[in-house]
Write a protein that binds this DNA or RNA. Structure first.
Length: 919
RNA sequence: GGGCAGUUAGCUCAGCUGGAAGAGCAAUUCCCUUACAAGGAAUAGGCCGCAGGUUCAAAUCCUGCACUGCCCACCA
């Protein structure tokens, strides 16, 4: 088995992602004998090209899917894309603009044709990129929010809600984006602080000389004022309530009203009320029966105002109004003021609140049920800190404005009965239907026209977990029954409300069940300095470039490692480089093992641990196995990645493989085979555990190992495909898979409890490691070349001493890793001249270094050791002299401290003794 | 205004059901010891944001404060 010296990710990746697709490794069919594990992808917009956010989101999902598959679940991960409403329309409009055209030049039908053409040409780019990322998606299920099946679901949902009376049409104050030319829902508005002014304006009373001063950030809207409001308990204004004001510039009479919402401490305590263009004012108007005058139209121009201002933009009108007020001496003062301004989340245009006829969805019933589901932990959040804001949001939810005045999207399936002239018949109720109705239920008329608006893109997204399983076609189909509710939703917190909350509401509404039991919320990928990546900042890291440069597994590992629950993460080339190095380490350790299989007969699956290192690595493997599995299960991908890294590099490579070389070079092939069996066993276990994060490299090595087995005539159940293999799990009750305790086979427990035995083994190994490290430190500090073979003399004062016999048993380890020529055990050994001393594990070790040692250096080194031990003595003594500590701390703790004190004391004693022999 | 997170080595972060401060990267020294220089060995580097409290014992629990970031709000 030849393996390249350096891991070449390109060839390996190409091979495997094609394999998984061609062999439909991740295809899923309902199977009642197995438990499903389902994820629906957060469908990326068709406009999209893979960015770091997608890379993270999908890596995390793939880790879960691959892990669950190893556990034996029938996994189903559904891919797809979202038509992306406004965002997508904007992209195509921009393309048109380059040709000097607008959508109106084309007209609705032609424009939609262009949209579809564009969607067909570019819409699958991102799905192809997900394939490269290695995602174990079931490609046969690929869905699009505007394909036929999904469209049926949208219509079906709309009609159901319409017929229940939950969808209604009305003229309300909505958030209007004049650039996109559409209404937006409340959450589609993003607020940003902006420096502006607070203008104080004098409003004179009609019947007296007095006036009232209002403070406003929007002077231009005064043209539409229909009242001034003050707080009911503001004494300053108590006697002006009810008075009439002559509205400047317009010369209209308005009243002073009182309303609880007015904060008397803010500004002047008096608020101008513009019901048609401010949400709060609108409510004040409702409570006080005020008139509503619309003065800004949907293009952002002034209307219904004195001719002078008519047709001006909002910005122009503001200037003009301020200038005119000033000229009339009505502008009292202009303060600097910073306040937040709403912007369109798609194009950043300032949002204009205005009155408009729109479709709304009454969500009060659904949101209550969604809140209950969260409170009853039916939907569980990871990390759970998201539950509170989620519930809070749902509790304060207002009706959802679902109509959009754009063309790209699901056209609202409502039909109006019209007369011969195409005029709507006022007495006929609109009808919601899948297609144009044959006959009007009210007048038996047969002419209709369909509502012009389309639905908010999030309406179809909210149906995603049910629409992908063909709910729109058949709500009792097998897939839906088997795969719904899904297992976990993985997404970033930026769409928690926009999407997650709505899916839950729709799931409960249409399926009578939550769409998923877990919601795994991850952070945002930021750049090296913690900034959000954005095109305008130019700090975007392209995941495809990273895949190319460092390998996909490196990208995935680095992302997983950074994905600590509940926080944003910073990535940089260094993190990808470290991950690539890890991949290379895995590759080379495997190469070493595989190379050594040359000329060996068939390995026995039943490993036979023979010595300390064997027991130790198996104990460490068991620990890692437990930790990694539970980390995957709780979506702590960062700890999973860390455990894998630490185990493989620090435990397996640095210690076990190095120690295995003693037996590997043995002339006795039986000995070599025995250790190879364990090496292969541990490697394979590791590969399985790591495969969810690093699917490519693990697949390749697994297959290489399998080829070797085939050469020995061994056929494996998984055909050499790691994704088809299973972790050592057993099926428990109700087909729920539980982890088997003590699954790592073969450890010598000698009758002890496995867990305890593991601990003891690790402790023992630690003392050997300690001896080796101490000797290595001396070598390094004395500048002894690694090539120089030196000797070590263990001073044996008491032959029955446990640590002595233990060191004796494992002297080969010490010899090998500390690079010693000989190791000897001498009773009452005298420190040789010009030697160095190591004290480890209660043992005294002399390293005769005639000609190599620098006496002064050694003295200084020992002095440092004494100082360190002295500190330890101080610390432990002060603890022990504390009566309360001895009395109240657990006995084991006190014993431990006593042990440490004793150890430090003998250490100093030994060092002092030997110092006498120095120089 | 309300809420949520974070503050630990130069950088990125672990550790937080309380019992001797950890990793990776960067730095320093030595080494191409045949799995790996994308590597190995060793070293240095931290009053664990500040102030109190609980406890025999606090990075870890509690309270307050500061700063940073995010989210929500009817910021005239």
């Amino acid at each position: 088995m030849e393996m390249e010296k350096v891991y070449n990710s390109k060839n390996v990746e190409e091979k495997w992602y094609k394999y998984w697709i061609e062999n439909k490794t991740f295809s899923s069919k309902p199977d009642e004998s197995r438990k499903p594990f389902t994820i629906v992808i957060p469908p990326p917009n068709v406009t999209g090209s893979l960015h770091m956010g997608h890379a993270l989101n999908n890596t995390l999902q793939d880790i879960i899917i691959r892990f669950k598959k190893l556990q034996g679940f029938n996994v189903c991960w559904v891919p797809g894309t979202d038509h992306g409403g406004i965002a997508t329309q904007n992209v195509v409009e921009k393309l048109l603009k380059k040709e000097g055209k607008t959508k109106y030049d084309l007209g609705r039908d032609k424009f939609l044709e262009t949209m579809w053409k564009w969607r067909v040409e570019t819409g699958d780019t991102i799905l192809d990129q997900l394939k490269k990322l290695g995602c174990g998606l079931d490609w046969d299920r690929t869905a699009f929010t505007m394909d036929e099946t999904r469209s049926k679901a949208v219509k079906k949902a709309f009609i159901e809600l319409f017929d229940k009376g939950l969808i209604y049409r009305g003229k309300r104050l909505v958030n209007w984006c004049s650039r996109c030319g559409t209404a937006l829902s409340d959450i589609e508005v993003e607020y940003e602080d902006e420096k502006s002014n607070l203008w104080h304006i004098k409003y004179p009373f009609r019947d007296s000389d007095g006036y009232i001063i209002v403070a406003t950030t929007r002077p231009e809207t005064m043209l539409g004022d229909t009242a001034v409001a003050v707080s009911p308990d503001d004494e300053r204004y108590a006697d002006v309530i009810g008075k009439t004001i002559n509205l400047p510039l317009v010369d209209r009479e308005i009243k002073v009203v009182s309303d609880y919402i007015v904060d008397k401490a803010f500004g002047t305590g008096a608020v101008k009320v513009t019901p048609a263009h401010d949400a709060t004012d609108n409510e004040i108007a409702k409570r006080n029966n005020l008139e509503t005058i619309e003065i800004i139209d949907i293009s952002g121009k002034m209307i219904n105002v004195p001719e002078k201002y008519s047709g001006l933009s909002v910005v122009e009108a503001r200037k003009a109004v301020v200038a005119d007020l000033e000229a009339q001496g009505l502008l009292i003062k202009t303060e600097d003021y910073s306040h937040s301004v709403g912007r369109c989340y798609r194009c950043a245009t300032t949002i204009e609140p205005l009155m408009s006829e729109q479709w709304f969805l009454n969500v009060s019933g659904m949101s209550k049920k969604a809140v209950d589901a969260a409170n009853e932990e039916k939907t569980k959040f990871y990390p759970q800190s998201w539950k509170k804001p989620y519930v809070l949001w749902l509790e304060n939810l207002r009706d959802w404005c679902i109509s959009r005045q754009i063309w790209w999207g699901h056209r609202i399936p409502v039909y109006y009965c019209v007369d011969e002239n195409g005029q709507r018949k006022p007495d006929c109720k609109p009808v919601a239907d899948f297609e144009t109705p044959k006959e009007c239920p009210d007048c038996k008329g047969t002419k209709f026209f369909q509502d012009e608006d389309v639905l908010d893109t999030w309406f179809s997204s909210a149906l995603w977990p049910i629409s992908v399983f063909n709910w729109g076609e058949d709500e009792n189909n097998e897939d839906l029954k088997y795969f719904y509710p899904t297992s976990v939703l993985v997404t970033g917190h930026e769409i928690l409300y926009l999407w997650v909350a709505r899916m839950v509401q729709f799931g409960i509404e249409f399926m009578k069940d939550i769409p998923y039991s877990h919601v795994f919320i991850h952070g945002i990928v930021r750049d090296k300095s913690g900034k959000k990546m954005s095109k305008s900042l130019g700090n975007v890291i392209d995941p495809l470039g990273i895949m190319d440069k460092f390998g996909t597994d490196a990208l995935r590992f680095a992302l997983a490692q950074a994905a600590a629950p509940g926080r944003d993460m910073q990535v940089s080339d260094e993190s990808f480089l470290a991950a690539r190095n890890f991949a290379n380490k895995i590759w080379n350790a495997s190469r070493f093992i595989i190379m050594n299989l040359e000329g060996i007969d068939k390995l026995d699956d039943n490993i036979k641990p023979a010595e300390l290192a064997d027991d130790w690595i198996l104990a460490e493997l068991q620990k890692t196995y437990n930790k990694v599995c539970s980390a995957y299960e709780t979506y702590d991908m960062d700890s999973a990645a860390r455990e894998l890294y630490d185990f493989f590099w620090t435990k397996f490579c640095d210690w076990y493989i190095e120690l295995s070389k003693i037996r590997m070079t043995s002339a006795d092939l039986k000995v070599k085979k025995q250790v190879l069996e364990i090496l292969v066993y541990v490697l394979k276990s590791f590969l399985q555990l790591a495969s969810p994060v690093m699917p490519f490299i693990t697949a390749e090595i697994w297959q290489t190992l399998n080829k070797q087995s085939e050469e020995w005539g061994v056929k494996s159940e998984d055909k050499g495909i790691i994704a088809e293999s299973s972790l050592p799990f057993i099926a428990g009750k109700d087909k729920v898979l539980t982890r088997q305790s003590g699954v790592i086979q073969g450890m010598n427990t000698n009758g002890a409890e496995p867990a305890l035995k593991q601990l003891q083994t690790i402790e023992k190994m630690k003392s050997i490691q300690d001896i080796i490290t101490k000797i290595r430190t001396i070598r390094s500090e004395m500048n002894i070349s690694p090539a120089a073979q030196i000797n070590a003399v263990f001073n044996v004062s008491d032959n029955g001493n446990e640590s002595v016999s233990f060191a004796k048993d494992n002297q080969d380890y010490i010899k090998r890793l500390a690079k010693l020529e000989t190791v000897s055990f001498e009773k009452d050994a005298k420190r040789p001249k010009n030697s160095a001393l190591a004290v480890a594990g209660g043992l005294e070790i002399f390293l005769p270094l005639e000609g190599l040692i620098d006496i002064e250096k050694e003295k200084a080194r020992l002095a440092k050791e004494i100082a360190l031990a002295g500190q330890e003595i101080e610390r432990t003594k002060s603890k022990l002299s504390n009566e309360n500590f001895v009395k109240r701390a657990p006995e084991a703790e006190v014993e431990k401290i006593k042990e440490r004190l004793k150890e430090a004391e003998t250490k100093i004693e030994k060092i002092n003794d030997s110092l006498k022999f120095l120089g």
